[in-house]
């Protein structure tokens, strides 16, 4: 929970088969202080080396590409759970195309040539979304790891605590002493890394 990716580590992937467009977009996005990686095809993008630590990112994707089209790449990426949010750019977008893109979860659908501000705004929005998604995924993974460190009895107690029961009630239900429940509750809070019951409730939701 402590290893939040830093904002300045964010990266923008640009996939366009035209070098002029790639270079222009790259310079523009870099001028906004973001890192850029460019690719000439969907295949090239999918074969990129992946960082060990997840970095917030977004994908600026041309619709017309040699081989796999931008829309095809989008539906392929959607099959996998995690992928950077997509901003589509196209030379001549029609309505069915943009509907399909947005239904597929695209952040924006820009028609070339576009205003730099529109692109940068979409890029910032997409990166922010991705950052939150990464944190969510990270927190979830962290909570699950902590939960697995509990003993079976502690998990039983935790389930009852989260439901809002008092130590006395829990002891009554489990047929143990109230003092035992109090010790177990202390261990649970420590292992789950929380200081209060509301925090415990919140993290329990992440465990699922």
């Amino acid at each position: 929970m402590t290893s939040f990716p830093k904002a300045d580590g964010a990266i923008v992937f640009v996939v366009d088969d035209d070098p002029a467009v790639r270079e222009g977009l790259s310079s523009l996005i870099r001028s906004a202080g973001l890192k850029v990686e460019t690719f000439s095809s969907g295949r090239e993008f999918q074969e990129r080396p992946r960082p060990k630590v997840p970095v917030p990112a977004c994908l600026v994707l041309d619709i017309r590409l040699p081989g796999q089209s931008g829309l095809e790449l989008q539906s392929e990426l959607t099959q996998t759970e995690e992928h950077p949010p997509i901003i589509f750019v196209t030379g001549h977008g029609d309505i069915p195309m943009s509907v399909r893109a947005m239904k597929g979860g695209a952040i924006d659908f820009l028609t070339k040539p576009f205003q730099a501000e529109d692109l940068l705004a979409a890029v910032h929005q997409a990166i922010e979304l991705d950052r939150r998604a990464i944190i969510r995924r990270h927190e979830g993974a962290d909570a699950r790891a902590r939960y697995l460190s509990l003993t079976p009895r502690e998990r039983e107690v935790m389930a009852l605590v989260v439901r809002g029961m008092l130590n006395k009630q829990i002891a009554g239900q489990l047929g143990t002493a109230e003092i035992t429940v109090k010790i177990q509750r202390g261990r649970i809070m420590k292992k789950m890394g929380v200081a209060s019951v509301p925090d415990l409730v919140r993290i329990a939701e992440k465990v699922g």
């Binding site: 035209d18 002029a20 467009v21 270079e23 222009g24 977009l25 310079s27 523009l28 870099r30 001028s31 906004a32 017309r64 750019v89 030379g91 001549h92 070339k112 040539p113 576009f114 730099a116």
Partner: peptide, 24 residues
């Protein structure tokens, strides 16, 4: 249609580069 696309590509490059140059 094909030519429109062909013009649009360099035009997109020009505009992006121009805006980038201003920002730099």
């Amino acid at each position: 249609a094909s030519l429109a696309h062909e013009l649009n590509q360099p035009l997109t490059g020009v505009i992006s580069n121009a805006e980038a140059a201003l920002r730099w």
